[in-house]
Design a protein around this nucleic acid. Structure first.
Lengths: 158, 158
DNA sequence: TATTGTTATACTCTATAACTATA
DNA sequence: TATAGTTATAGAGTATAACAATA
C-alpha cells in the first residue's frame, strides 16, 4: 500500500519536473489542425502501404474514375496540384498500368486521362479500403452529424 | 431582365459541361482537413512574411519563452520534430540572435535553450501578430464555443 | 498570343544512419 | 551502454521558369 501510494507521487513529482508549459502552442487552431491532418494522413499511409498508394494518387485515381477522358490540367486544378508536378504523378500511375494518357480528339495538345481495366479493378479495392477508414473516422466523430459539424467548421477556416 | 436571366443559364450550361464529379474526393475528412490546414498555414506565412518566421519557428520561440533552459531534445519532442532536423531550426534562430544555446550545468552534452533579450522582444511582437490571427479564426468558427467544438472533434481523430 | 504537357530546378519538410562527446 | 547534439543524405511535396507543339 505504501509503495503503491508512493509510486504515483514519485511519478507526479517527476512529471512536474519534466513537463513543459505547452498551452500557448498546443491550444492553437493551426497547430491542432496540423496534428490531426498528419495523424489522418499517417493512418492513410499505413493502410495503403500494401497498395503502394499515396493520398494524392488515390484522389487522382478516384477523380479519373468518376470523370474519364478529362485533361491533365483539369484533374490537377481540382486537387490544387501544379500541372508541372502532376506530370510526375500521372507518369507513375501510367507506369503501373493503372492510368492511360490518350491523345485528345479535339485538342491535340491535351492528354485525355482514363483508367485501364487494371486501374478500374484497383480503384475498387482502394475505394473499399478507404471507405472503411472513412467510416471509422465518422464513428470517432460521433456519427454523420459529427462529421458534418467538423466539415462545416473546417469550411469556415478556408 | 432577360439578359440577367440568361446569364446564369449560360453559366449553368458551361458549368455542366466543364464541372467534374468531385464528391468522392472533396467530401472526405482527410481531404478537407488537409485543405483547411494548408489554408491556415498559408495565412500564417503571409502574416509572418515581414518577421520571416515559419509556423514551426514560432512554436519553438513561444515554447522556449515559456520554458527557458530546457534541452533541445525536450522542445523538439513536444513539437514532434526529429532532433536531427531541430538542429538546423535552432541554428537559424541562433544566427538571428533570437535564441542562445548555453552549456547545461548538470549535463555537458545538452544545450540549454534561452531567448536573448532581442528574442524576447521579438516574441512579444510575434505573439501579438499570432493572437490577432487566432482571434479572427475563432470569430470565423462562431466564437470560443465553436473553436472548442472544432478542437474537440480534431482530438477524436488523433 | 495563349494553353498543354513537359523538363529542369530549387526550396522546404521529413526521415534515417552514423559520428562525437559525454553520461 | 545509452543519450545529446550534430552531420550527411535521401525522399517527398511544392514552387517557378522556360520550352515545343498546338490552339
Amino acid at each position: 500500500m505504501k509503495r503503491e501510494a508512493q509510486v504515483p507521487l514519485a511519478d507526479a513529482s517527476a512529471v512536474a519536473h519534466r513537463s513543459l508549459l505547452t498551452q500557448a502552442t498546443t491550444s492553437l487552431v493551426g497547430y491542432r489542425l496540423r496534428r490531426a491532418q498528419l495523424s489522418v494522413f499517417h493512418r492513410f499511409l499505413m493502410l495503403f502501404d500494401d497498395l503502394r498508394l499515396r493520398p494524392a494518387e488515390y484522389s487522382v485515381l478516384v477523380l479519373i474514375a468518376d470523370n474519364p477522358g478529362r485533361k491533365q490540367t483539369e484533374i490537377a486544378e481540382v486537387l490544387g496540384i501544379k500541372r508541372a508536378n502532376f506530370v510526375t504523378l500521372v507518369h507513375g500511375l501510367a507506369q503501373r498500368r493503372l492510368v492511360e494518357r490518350a491523345a485528345s480528339a479535339d485538342d491535340r495538345r491535351a492528354n485525355a486521362l482514363h483508367l485501364t481495366a487494371e486501374g478500374q479493378a484497383f480503384v475498387v479495392r482502394a475505394r473499399a479500403l478507404h471507405d472503411a477508414m472513412e467510416a471509422d473516422l465518422v464513428t470517432r466523430l460521433g456519427g454523420p452529424a459529427g462529421r458534418d459539424r467538423l466539415l462545416s467548421l473546417l469550411d469556415r477556416l478556408t
